[in-house]
Amino acid sequence: MSILLTDISKNFGAFAALNHINLEVPEGELVALLGPSGCGKTTLLRIIAGLEHTDQGHILINGDDKTDQNVSQRGIGFVFQHYALFRHMTVFENVAFGLRVKPKRDRPSNEIITKKVHALLDLVQLDWLHNRYPDQLSGGQRQRIALARALAVEPSVLLLDEPFGALDASVRKDLRQWLRNLHHELNVTSIFVTHDQEEAMEVASQVVVLNHGKIEQQGTPSDIYDHPANAFVSRFIGQTNVFDLENHESDWLQSAGLLSQGQKGKIAHVRPHDIIIEKSINNANTLATLKDWQHLGALIRIELVKNGANKSSDASIFAELPNDQFKDLKLVRGDKVNLKIRHAHWFH
């Protein structure tokens, strides 16, 4: 079901956690709330859930105003970063809890509960653990049980607070994939909070970038990466090289071929893969020197330092090349190279 937030603000004392947030999440989307820590993303999620009150504004789920409704009446599913499984209950009882606490007239019979819980445990592929207690499970298993528990009440929306934050890297990768597939299967409108841009890009169909309690940009992962709305988004999503033209870099950038497309702002952001490296033949008039390189798997990250007079902004420049291209260049540390900037994002 669709979620509509209008003019949500939240202050904690003098600190403005959220500042006039307007957000629409269409039905069936899997949305990532992405931002650095302290940007207000978890607060926003908790306000949608009803675990936190908004100071102003409205929360509409499928057109119904839920602003003043208690968390237990909102019909949402919430998954916590640290799972929050009921430690004194078995896995089965954890998942059954939401069904057992329904008012008598809505409560399914015991047989139906049993059937439904086993079906959900099958869905998360953990039915064989139904007799265990939470502290006998691994982190990844616990998070899948927490998800099954949230799904048991057939929530209208599913909210996940840093669902992979407490897991180790390899489990996290598996679970991301698994969550995306599960979402395709169930198609329940979901919002998850993350500070990991890679995770947001990989899992979500829509990404909402938050900073200082404001939405910086909302769009598909490709939108956000290819057309960042501002310097913050460009810097936060993926790596980027920042060139400040007010810092007299224009000569250097002119030679690198950047200004041939015209100068469209004061600051140019260049992605590492938009820098082409050419080996210099005569070592004269080169633009940069190869300082170091690291093997990232399919890509090689190259660290370059600018040559020439301008030492006022001598931060390293990072470029990325596919493995085989780098091998063809036969570069060693200290080599002088020329480079060409293919594309830049301009900001003021």
Binding site: A49, G50, L51, N70, V71, S72, Q73, R74, G75, I76, G77, F78, F80, H82, A84, L85, F86, R87, F97, G98, V101, K102, A146, R149, A150, A152, V153
Partner: peptide, 15 residues
């Protein structure tokens, strides 16, 4: 968090 989880699953405060 466990209490918040119970509330989000529809349990009353008393329950």
């Amino acid at each position: 968090q466990e209490e918040e989880a119970a509330l989000s699953l529809g349990a009353s405060g008393w329950k």
